[in-house]
Design a protein around this nucleic acid. Structure first.
Length: 466
RNA sequence: GUCCCUAUCGUCUAGAGGCCUAGGACAACACCCUUUCACGGUGUGAACCGGGGUUCGAAUCCCCGUGGGGACGCCA
């Protein structure tokens, strides 16, 4: 059997992080088995679906590197097919028209809730041998309901949750087509998964309750039942359901926050799935290792600190070319011309071990492009009379180095000699020097900073305060 | 309310009856490295929700509680 999985988002907003993980697992499962990954857009909610959201989903998936083999299919373009199947079901008696008004339904629900019962349709329009249906109202456009089996139970072996069995008496005859004739979600999914020959339905566990209904429809259609794997949800850092208000949820939020897509993929892979003690692995390794047996059945809490750590690992091993390009993009976003300073590829090497995300990288690089403001407290704290004397001595020594000699070793030597001559320790020169050059007392090795910053900028910034 | 799912360090997790005086990672803390800050290295503390069974033996299997989550739409 060829493995065929799908990701079926509804385009009502961004690709959020939970959806991204579902997509990642479905993608990885197909790739692992050399099967196909199908993208299907579930846009039957015309009121809430937008083309912008479709684009956001496509962009998010591309950013994460989740390529699909088929699709995107759009449910709105498959209406004829759904209607054809519904007509067949009507004919076969596995579906029927229901003329109950919405108000009647509401009253029924209220009644049931008052009796503390599970709200459900009571089957008043369900045809039974020997049963007299209610008089047909002339002014009601009927919906179409699925005739759910009323005895026995539905069971499946969920690849994540294990055996699940639900009694048919829990299920009511749900609506498969609205009064306006458009089919509903639980029905479209079934037809699509069937038509698209999906072998493994990998989706969020909020669909567990839909599964028995869908299996019943599949059975009524004489279709083969796919395997199901229901993934638990991702909770926010506070243990609450993820929400746009409190959490970064859209994958683009993570791009904006300076995360690498590889880090997100690695993090998501590990959030709810494991391969022994492995924590840091490539996309290729993930595909090779991925299986459904090691998916956690319970909900996982999102943890930014661990994501930060992973992101840092990916930055450390990223090429300077990649980091330079990202730094340039992010500097430009701040209105800084990335060409108007030292070569980014050199700068980035100095900082790649010291930042946890790409925005921090851009922050760290900014003083090489924009002369930093030196606050009065900063000056008072670091540029003491003694410090100024040392810096003046250093400045004169540096001035004697020509551009060709402006190299890390010689610069380090110049600082050391200055320290000896002035009778001070290294930090007493290095710290104020950092403040003058970068506006902050911490930096990579000061000799390396001097080298990359270049003779002109270094001397100019020293002269500014001396 | 009814039904379904779920429960190991603060967090992500390893764990498929004896390998568990429960392992790894993030975070925390300590020390080392160091011209600063990081990085890196070494180490420390930290968990099987509660109660009953089953078994020679249970973190692992079963039941009951409890906590958490989900579903109950002419949304998806």
């Amino acid at each position: 059997m060829t493995v065929r999985t799908r990701f079926a988002p509804s385009p009502t907003g961004y690709l959020h992080i939970g959806g991204a993980r579902t997509a990642l697992y479905a993608w990885a499962y197909a790739r692992h088995h050399g099967g196909q990954f199908v993208l299907r857009i579930e846009d039957t909610d015309v009121a809430r679906s937008t083309p912008e959201a479709v684009q956001a989903i496509l962009d998010g998936m591309r950013w994460l590197g989740l390529d699909h083999d088929e699709g995107p299919y759009y449910q709105m373009q498959r209406m004829d097919r759904y209607k054809e199947v519904i007509a067949r079901m009507l004919e076969a008696g596995t579906a029927y028209r229901c003329y109950t008004r919405k108000e009647e339904l509401e009253a029924l629900r209220a009644e049931q809730e008052a009796r503390k019962e599970k709200p459900r349709y009571d089957g008043r329009w369900r045809p039974e041998p020997g049963k007299t249906l209610p008089p047909m109202p002339a002014d009601v456009a009927p919906v179409i309901r699925f005739r759910n089996p009323d005895t026995g139970s539905v069971a499946w072996d969920d690849l994540v949750k294990g055996h699940i069995e639900i009694s048919n008496s829990e299920l009511d005859d749900f609506i498969i087509a609205r009064a306006d004739g458009t089919p509903t979600y639980n029905f479209c999914v079934v037809v699509d998964d069937w038509d698209m020959r999906i072998s493994h339905v990998i989706r969020g566990d909020d669909h567990v309750n839909n599964t028995p209904r869908q299996i019943n429809v599949l059975q009524a259609l004489g279709a083969t039942i796919p395997c199901y794997a229901h993934l638990s949800m991702i909770l926010g850092e506070d243990g609450q359901k993820l929400s746009k208000r409190r959490n970064a949820v859209a994958v683009t939020d993570f791009d904006d926050a300076g995360f690498l897509p590889e880090a997100i993929v690695n993090y998501l892979a590990r959030l709810g799935w494991s391969h022994g003690d492995e924590e840091f692995f490539s996309r290729e390794q993930f595909v090779e290792w991925f299986d459904l047996d090691h998916i956690t059945a319970s909900a996982a809490q999102f943890n930014t600190e661990k994501l930060d750590w992973l992101n840092q690992q990916y930055i450390k091993q990223a090429t300077s070319g990649y980091l330079a390009a990202e730094a340039a993009r992010r500097l430009a976003l701040r209105g800084i011309d990335p060409e108007a300073g030292p070569p980014l590829e050199q700068l980035v090497v100095l900082y790649k071990d010291r930042v946890t995300n790409l925005n921090e990288l851009a922050d760290a690089l900014t003083p090489f492009f924009v002369t930093p403001e030196l606050s009065a407290p900063m000056l008072d704290a670091h540029l003491t009379v003694d410090a100024r004397a040392s810096l003046r001595a250093l400045r004169d020594r540096l001035d004697r180095l020509v551009v060709a000699e402006w190299q890390k070793a010689a610069l380090g030597q110049a600082i050391k000699e200055t320290c000896i001559a002035q009778g001070v320790k290294m930090p007493q020169v290095a710290i104020p020097l950092r403040v003058v050059l970068l506006g902050q007392p911490q930096s990579p090795g000061i000799d390396a900073v001097l080298e990359v910053m270049g003779r002109d900028m270094v001397l100019a910034r020293l002269d500014r305060v001396l």
